[in-house]
Design a protein around this nucleic acid. Structure first.
Length: 441
DNA sequence: AAACAGACCAACCGCAACTAT
DNA sequence: GATAGTTGCGGTTGGTCTGTT
């Protein structure tokens, strides 16, 4: 997918073109392709191979510019293209990739054999519009969680995941490369997904496994593994092996990932698309608490409809937070039971800025805790300076989401009650949104 | 049945990166 | 190093299809 890979070489024909155009100006055709045009293009590629698209018009008389020829070939005529709607697994993978890469459609397409960047882009744009209009989170809960936690990559002086002392240096280097590849400050760097993609024979997305964040080198393993009941998200199978259409890009020339973001240069390291799905681990129905009707939630002043079920959960949460802070060697923020909430909710006892004992570190930890709390229970933390996780999707381009009238925080930090990755299940009920929290927003 | 809105899809456009001259 | 040409990418647009009122 490297740019300009076959560039140059056009000068040999430049004079011919000039002469030809001067003699008989060619009016190139636009619009939909006809079957005859397709046949001409396919025949040309069959005999001359891909590339040198501008020569197609000269050699075949096809009244299409090289750009159009390339696009037609890439998106429609190329062999091994997978037609039809996306499978749920593909949809989930797209969401995960989008969370990691932003609007890098071509890169995403490299992870979805048989799919084109245009296809993915169209899918995502329409899907995003639809979900945003419906007030649903853009990402499925597992992706939201991961994305939110990857926030810490902004703190490369602090992030254990970016630590060079970590074992698994290849992955660490990949992450380091990713961190230096434009993800430095404006967006979370790719984390586990990049790592997973760089590790053969792993589940597609490791953080979906029953023991998320279980990378041996990850200091986050401990708290999250121990409190996995909070994060035991749906185990997603890799892209369905049942997707019937054709072989997986056997001869596709450039599906290797020559980019450094994921540190993946070997197609074999791509997600095991043909791997048989692992057992699905279903969430208990009250994993995040039962969604409640928006009305009752609003009445409670929480806006969100998800609440921790009982004292036990609250205690476990507190314990988990303590462990989390133990890991990062910082005292946890004080947590006090919310008044009258039956202990089911916790409330940050921030008391404002004055408790800035740890200055920047404390602030960053609080930020992380906000994220964590927000994921476990959105009402537990105010979005405050929620980093533009949604903006991270922009990847320098803003038009895709720039039209959003939503606060960026409304996009990513939603916790859905559902665990399925299917479109209709993400963000169940749509009640668990920052924008629904009258107290906060 | 007609009108409308939304979803979907294909294609175009502008720009940037790259290579050869 | 400058320039021209090619390729690839991402954003956008316009047409068609489909579902709803």
């Amino acid at each position: 997918m490297a740019r300009g890979g076959g560039g140059g070489g056009g000068h040999a024909h430049a004079e011919d073109v000039t002469e030809q155009e001067e003699a008989t100006p060619v009016v190139l055709k636009k619009g939909p392709w006809t079957a005859a045009e397709d046949a001409m293009l396919m025949d040309h590629v069959r005999h001359h191979g891909e590339g040198n698209w501008n020569a197609v018009q000269r050699m075949t008389g096809l009244l299409r510019c090289g750009k159009s020829c390339r696009l037609r070939w890439t998106n429609h005529l190329r062999p091994n293209l997978k037609k039809g709607s996306f499978s749920p697994d593909e949809e989930l993978l797209i969401a995960q990739l989008h969370a990691q890469l932003g609007n890098k459609w071509a890169r995403m397409a490299a992870h979805l054999p048989g799919r084109t960047d245009n296809e993915i882009k169209n899918y995502w744009n329409t899907r995003t519009k639809r979900r945003q209009r419906a007030g649903l989170p853009v990402y499925p809960p597992e992706v939201q969680l991961h994305l939110a936690l990857s926030k810490r990559c902004r703190y490369d002086d602090f992030s254990p995941l970016a630590s060079p002392q970590l074992p698994g240096t290849a992955n660490a280097q990949a992450l380091g490369a990713a961190a230096s590849a434009g993800y430095a400050s404006s967006r979370p760097a790719p984390l586990d997904l990049a790592r997973q993609l760089a590790v053969p024979n792993q589940q597609t997305v490791q953080f979906l496994s029953p023991a998320p964040f279980s990378a041996p080198s990850s200091p986050w393993k401990k708290p999250f593994a121990r409190n996995a009941q909070y994060f035991q998200l749906a185990h997603s199978s890799p892209v369905s092996p049942s997707t019937p259409t054709g072989p997986m890009h056997p001869a596709t020339p450039d599906l290797s990932l020559g980019y450094g973001v994921c540190g993946v240069t070997d197609q074999s390291r791509l997600p095991p698309l043909s791997q048989s799905p692992g057992p699905r681990v279903e969430l208990p129905s009250n994993q995040y608490g039962q969604p409640t009707p928006p009305t009752s939630a609003a009445t409670a002043g929480l806006g969100g409809g998800v609440a921790l079920a009982d004292h036990q959960n609250a205690a476990s949460l507190e314990k988990m937070l303590q462990e989390l802070h133990d890991v990062i060697k910082v005292d946890p923020p004080a947590l006090v039971p919310a008044n009258g909430g039956g202990g089911a909710a916790l409330e940050r006892h921030d008391g404002g800025v004055p408790e800035n004992r740890f200055s920047g570190v404390q602030h960053r930890v609080d930020d992380d805790m906000d994220t964590l709390l927000g994921l476990v229970h959105p009402a537990l933390s105010a979005p405050e300076t929620v980093p533009p996780a949604a903006a991270s999707n922009h990847s320098g381009s803003t038009s895709q989401h720039s039209s959003d009238d939503q606060n960026p925080s409304t996009v990513d930090l939603h916790v859905a009650g559902g665990t399925s990755s299917s479109d209709q299940d993400w963000g169940l009920d749509g009640v668990c949104k920052w924008s629904n929290m009258s107290r906060i927003c």
